[in-house]
């Protein structure tokens, strides 16, 4: 589905965003995103995987330029590519950013209950959206657009006259996705859009997300910790650990031939039907982002840790086609699975 020649749509350069907390006079710095370089292409589903507290959500906030204290951008840049032109998002004014939102980049958050206004009918939420972005339409005109849009996505247009609490969790989440797709954005950012849902409902929501992507031919950046979801929808996956990208590759490659020891643990420990062999979790537990270990953040848990891992964070290097890894083991041995 993704051509390797597909143009870029989103790019980050050495992005660093930290939470700077001031607790009892001592400053505490949580390095949630610690130097991330991303190149996300047109017409692809880019999955970001990682466990809770590895900085995935913070990265999304930075991509969406929704940085609010105590989160601060320490360095780096985020570019959107619009009509072949790169826009440095953090150089834009408030009004320009507002205009890009929902029209160019939209956001599907996790808890759909807390997204839709509980005291407004859905048609009012839709109306607010359309009025502020589609010029010169009356209320009735905007409603017609909303109804047509829901119909195209196979959702019953009668939900427009419902309050959020009257809908089931799955329907609410699908309405949120529909809302995010309303203005045909080029990038849709989904933060665990299916996490709290039941498997069958989750499948329905993913189905909708996929069909939206296929119709709009846009890019979806999907964050979830569920590797099964990634395997099902993503074209490329980035694995995040303790605020850094440690591996990035096409989805088949990540599942078949992971190179970073953490990714190997992550993939090998997934339970599979028809396979009852013993699965091992990675030893130890994830580090606190406020007290990161020096060097590679995975070294305290890594079975292959060497002296260099303790001293220096490895750069992310390209191995083969479209496969990037940040690990000293891999730099020593450029082809094949790490020892």
């Amino acid at each position: 589905m993704t051509g390797a020649g597909g143009g870029l749509v989103l790019r980050t350069e050495e992005l660093k965003t930290f939470y700077v907390l001031d607790a009892f006079g001592t400053e505490k710095i949580v390095k949630a995103v610690n130097g991330v370089d991303l190149e996300i292409r047109e017409n692809e589903v880019y999955g970001i995987a990682g466990e809770s507290g590895c900085g995935k959500t913070t990265l999304l906030k930075a991509l969406y330029s929704a940085i609010e204290p105590p989160l601060r951008r320490i360095g780096g840049k985020v570019f959107y590519v619009r009509d072949g032109e790169e826009i440095d998002v953090y150089s834009l004014g408030k009004e320009e950013k507002r205009r890009l939102r929902w029209e160019y980049v939209s956001y599907v958050p996790q808890g759909s209950m807390s997204v839709l206004n509980p005291v407004k009918r859905l048609k009012d939420s839709y109306g607010d959206f359309l009025e502020s972005h589609v010029a010169g339409k009356t209320r009735r005109g905007t409603l017609a657009i909303a109804r047509e849009h829901l119909h195209q996505l196979g959702l019953p247009p009668k939900v427009l006259s419902a309050y959020p609490h009257q809908l089931s969790g799955g329907m609410r989440q699908r309405v949120t996705i529909a809302l995010a797709a309303l203005l045909g954005p080029r990038i849709m950012i989904g933060d665990e859009p299916t996490t709290a849902l039941d498997v069958i409902v989750q499948r329905g929501v993913i189905q909708l997300l996929k069909s939206v992507q296929e119709t709009l031919k846009n890019t979806i950046v999907l964050v979830t910790h569920d590797m099964g979801v990634h395997a099902n929808v993503a074209d490329r996956i980035g694995i995040m650990y303790a605020g850094v990208m440690i591996e990035e590759a096409a989805v088949e490659r990540v599942f078949e031939k992971p190179l970073h020891p953490y990714t190997q643990y992550l993939i090998d420990s997934l339970p599979k039907f028809g396979d009852k062999s013993l699965k091992q979790s990675a030893p130890g537990s994830p580090p606190s982002l406020a007290e990161l270990p020096g060097g590679c953040p995975f070294h305290p848990r890594c079975p292959h840790a060497m002296d260099v891992c303790v001293q220096k964070m490895p750069d992310i290097v390209t191995i083969g086609e479209d496969h990037k890894v940040a690990c000293w083991l891999v730099e020593g041995d450029r082809d094949g699975r790490a020892a």
Partner: peptide, 24 residues
């Protein structure tokens, strides 16, 4: 249905069929 709806951690086993959901 439940068994078929579990996203398997294997990119070669993606869902092909579509399903419908209940609202109530």
């Amino acid at each position: 249905l439940l068994r078929a709806s579990i996203p398997e951690a294997d990119p070669s086993k993606r869902w092909k069929a579509r399903i419908s959901l209940t609202d109530i």
